[in-house]
C-alpha cells in the first residue's frame, strides 16, 4: 500500500514537469506576446500606444529572450523560490491573484458538487430500481436536457430572467453593497441569493452524467447473484439495496472526485464569463487571451497538479471503499 502511494507520487514528478513545459508551450503557441495582445486589445477599440512605450515594456518583461530561457526562469522561480512570477496585466504577483479568487471558486464548486450529488444520488437509485418505469424515463429525460443545453445559453437566460423578474443584480456573486464588504451574516445571505444561478447552470450537466453512471452501475450490481442471495435470506429491500449494491455503485462518484475540482474550475469558464463570476475561470481565460503568460501558466500548472492529486486521492478512496480493487 505504502509503496504503491510512493510510486504514484514519484511518477507525478515527471508528469508535473512535463505538464509545466507543455503548459508553457501551449500558452506561447498563439503568435505574439503580451505586448501584441495589449496592442491588439487597444487597436480593437481604435486606441493606440506609443511604440516607445511598447518597446520599453517588451524589454522590461524579457520577451525578446528565447522561449527556453524564459521557461527556465519561470520554472526555477517556482521550484526554488515558490515564486510564480508577476502578472503583466494585473501588475500583481500571480500567486496573490489566484489566491484571491480561489475562495469563491471553491465555494461555487463545492455548492455545485453538493447540488449534483444530492440530485443525482436518489434519482440514480430510483432509476435503477424502477428501470423502464415512467419515473425512470422522466428523471432521465430531464437529466439529459440538463446535459444537452449548452451552459452559456442557460446562463444567459437565467441571468436575464433573474435580473428582470426577480430583481437580482446582474451577474457576479454579490450585490453592490456587499461586493467589497467584509464577511458578515448579511453577506452570506447575499451570496446564497446569487449562488443558485451558477450552481444550476454548472450542475445540470454533471447531474445527468452521474445519474446515468449511478443507474448503470447499480443495474449491474442488482443483477449479481449475491443480491438474490440476500433477498432469499429475507433482507428488507432497503437494507438490501444500501448494504452492498449502492456502496459498490458509489465508486464512480468517488472516482469523479479526482476530475471534479479542476473541471469545475476550468470547465466553468464559459459560464463564469457569461455570469461575470469573480472566480478563477474568467481570470484564466482573460490571461490566455491577453497572453499574460505567467498567470496563465501558473493557472494551468495549478489545475494540473490539482487533477493529479485528485486522481490519486480518489484512487486511494476507491481502494479503501472497495477491497476488490487491487494495487497493481
Amino acid at each position: 500500500m505504502l509503496t504503491y502511494i510512493l510510486r504514484r507520487i514519484l511518477f507525478m514528478v515527471p508528469v508535473t514537469l512535463a505538464i509545466s513545459l507543455v503548459a508553457f508551450i501551449i500558452i506561447q503557441l498563439p503568435p505574439g506576446d503580451f505586448i501584441t495582445a495589449l496592442t491588439a486589445q487597444m487597436a480593437e477599440n481604435n486606441e493606440t500606444l506609443d511604440p516607445e512605450t511598447l518597446a520599453a515594456l517588451r524589454d522590461r518583461y524579457g520577451f525578446d529572450q528565447p522561449m527556453i530561457v524564459q521557461y527556465w526562469k519561470w520554472i526555477t522561480g517556482i521550484v526554488f523560490r515558490g515564486d510564480f512570477g508577476q502578472s503583466f496585466e494585473w501588475s500583481r504577483p500571480v500567486a496573490d491573484l489566484i489566491w484571491d479568487r480561489l475562495g469563491l471558486t471553491l465555494i461555487v464548486s463545492f455548492a455545485t458538487l453538493v447540488f449534483v450529488w444530492v440530485l443525482a444520488f436518489p434519482i440514480g437509485i430510483y432509476s435503477a430500481v424502477r428501470q423502464y418505469s415512467w419515473g425512470d424515463y422522466i428523471a432521465t429525460f430531464f437529466g439529459f436536457i440538463g446535459l444537452a443545453v449548452p451552459n452559456f445559453l442557460l446562463a444567459l437566460v437565467l441571468m436575464y430572467l433573474s435580473s428582470r423578474y426577480l430583481g437580482a443584480s446582474v451577474g457576479g456573486l454579490f450585490s453592490a453593497e456587499y461586493v467589497n464588504a467584509d464577511w458578515s451574516w448579511g453577506r452570506v445571505v447575499d451570496l446564497l441569493n446569487h449562488l443558485w444561478v451558477p450552481v444550476i447552470v454548472l450542475g445540470t450537466g454533471g447531474t445527468a452524467a452521474l445519474i446515468r453512471i449511478m443507474r448503470a452501475n447499480l443495474l449491474d450490481e442488482l443483477k449479481k447473484p449475491y443480491v438474490e442471495l440476500a433477498r432469499a435470506r429475507g433482507l428488507s429491500e432497503t437494507r438490501l439495496l444500501l448494504k452492498y449494491p449502492v456502496r459498490v455503485a458509489l465508486n464512480p462518484f468517488i472516482s469523479t472526485l479526482g476530475w471534479i475540482l479542476p473541471t469545475l474550475v476550468s470547465g466553468a469558464v464559459v459560464t463564469a464569463i457569461v455570469l461575470s463570476l469573480p472566480t478563477s475561470g474568467p481570470l484564466l481565460l482573460n490571461a490566455l487571451f491577453a497572453q499574460d503568460m505567467y498567470l496563465a501558466g501558473g493557472f494551468i500548472l495549478l489545475l494540473s497538479i490539482l487533477t493529479l492529486i485528485g486522481t490519486l486521492v480518489s484512487d486511494l478512496l476507491l481502494a479503501w471503499l472497495d477491497p476488490r480493487i487491487r494495487y497493481e
Binding site: 444567459l156 441571468m159 436575464y160 435580473s163 446582474v170 451577474g171 457576479g172 453592490a176 461586493v179 463564469a272 464569463i273 457569461v274 455570469l275 461575470s276 463570476l277 469573480p278 474568467p282 482573460n286
Partner: peptide
C-alpha cells in the same frame, strides 16, 4: 462594477 461579458453590461 467589473463585468466579464458585454452582454452583462447591456443588461445592467
Amino acid at each position: 462594477d467589473v463585468m466579464e461579458s458585454r452582454q452583462a453590461i447591456v443588461l445592467m
